[in-house]
Design a protein around this nucleic acid. Structure first.
Lengths: 153, 153
DNA sequence: TGACAATAGTCGTTGAAACGTACATTTCGC
DNA sequence: GCGAAATGTACGTTTCAACGACTATTGTCA
């Protein structure tokens, strides 16, 4: 099989290396999928990162999380978590309160409204992702996950 | 092997689906690699997208390209190619001129300065990528490329 | 030919990302 | 305990991304 990306990007010359080809494929595919998700989330007024934050807070099961904890768990690196949380709070999807014991710390918790919104979105997202990624069988899905985790090890 | 991403994001709960896990792994890995490349390009005053444009123009082998052609070939989708080219032109790395036969069209061409810069950067980038992606053997590299191209088919 | 659609690029505006830095608070070492 | 370092968050500023709307030019076809 001749590299599909070459045709896709209408390139006439091959990549400079196999690693280069893999990198470009990876970045391109991630960009496409992320745009897809972004389009899906848009009607709900959320960006993928904001959706990610809400999932983190829900995953905490009611335990509020600090900015630092949220930052560590974000799938994509974000500077300035403060203003990211500002935007979500402005929509009433999370609450924040300053810790009494350590007054430097601010903890965030998802609100009932946030949980409702997530519940609504999740169904659609899951179906969406299943359609998108389902084309790979479960075996190749596992291979993909394996390789990606290895790449970050 | 237990999903590495779960530990990495300090999640206690598993992903909602295998597709979800693959998606998050993909987006996270691409983000890490792209940040890596961005850090490498920074001293040269280029973003990954700007570097991408210059490579497209060099790949054209002296034939100037229109905004639309550049846009089609970009690895990550960009609205507003005009201002993207503005920023690169401001650094003297490309030239633009309006077509005489179709006065709606503007063609861009990489300058000698742009070619020099690319030549300097390429060596470092290649070594960088080889180090990063080399950890996968050539077989898994091929598997990865295959799966990603399949995912976009 | 002349109205209308399609195409290529540009621009205004809003909001968000990037980056560094600053501030408040706590912890540590002596 | 007192100064210095570390920590957690916030903010100023510059640049960029996103989205629409708009202009200019060319193509279409009745």
């Amino acid at each position: 099989m001749v590299g599909r990306l070459i045709a896709e990007l209408k390139q006439t010359k091959p990549f400079r290396s196999r690693a280069d080809e893999a990198y470009l494929n990876l970045v391109r595919t991630a960009d496409l999928l992320k745009h897809d998700v972004a389009g899906f989330l848009k009607p709900f007024g959320l960006t993928p990162t904001q959706y990610n934050v809400l999932r983190i807070l829900r995953g905490a099961g009611g335990a509020p999380k600090t900015c630092g904890e949220i930052s560590e768990r974000l799938v994509t690196a974000e500077p300035d978590v403060t203003r990211l949380l500002d935007r979500i709070e402005r929509q009433g999807l999370l609450d924040r309160e300053r810790s009494a014991s350590d007054r430097r710390v601010v903890r965030s918790r998802i609100t009932a409204k946030g949980l409702d919104l997530l519940a609504t979105i999740d169904q659609g997202i899951d179906a969406h992702q299943a359609r998108r990624l389902g084309r790979l069988g479960s075996e190749r899905l596992t291979q993909l996950i394996d390789i990606l985790e290895d790449l970050r090890a």
